[in-house]
């Protein structure tokens, strides 16, 4: 029996990266003043926070597991949780930009 190679380094890192879901979250009006507290509760629910946008009351980050999303939505003060969309503009030499 051939021993399977240990899951280390790039392979594991790559797997984890692709499993991670990037999300954006908005906080509702009522709890905007408690923004920092809501952030903490989101982190406790499993959100890896990348960017806090206090002016907008939004946060970007990632979750390891899609099941975290429902936990995140239940945090008091979380208005919307959305999958992060990707943008790609045309290459610089394209006629239409």
């Amino acid at each position: 029996m051939i021993e399977r190679p240990p899951y280390i380094g790039g392979y594991l890192a790559g797997l984890r990266m692709s499993d991670r879901l990037n999300v954006v979250v908005s906080v509702d009006e009522a709890r905007l003043k408690d923004f920092a507290d809501v952030l903490q509760e989101m982190a406790d629910a499993g959100l890896h926070i990348e960017n806090e946008m206090a002016m907008l009351g939004t946060v970007s980050g990632s979750v390891d597991d899609p099941q975290v999303l429902s936990r995140l939505r239940r945090v008091k003060g979380v208005a919307h949780v959305e999958r992060c969309r990707h943008f790609q503009i045309a290459p610089p030499n394209a006629e239409i930009q």
Partner: peptide, 9 residues
Amino acid sequence: GSGSDGSIL
């Protein structure tokens, strides 16, 4: 030319 919701927000 690429970006995401997070960087735009």
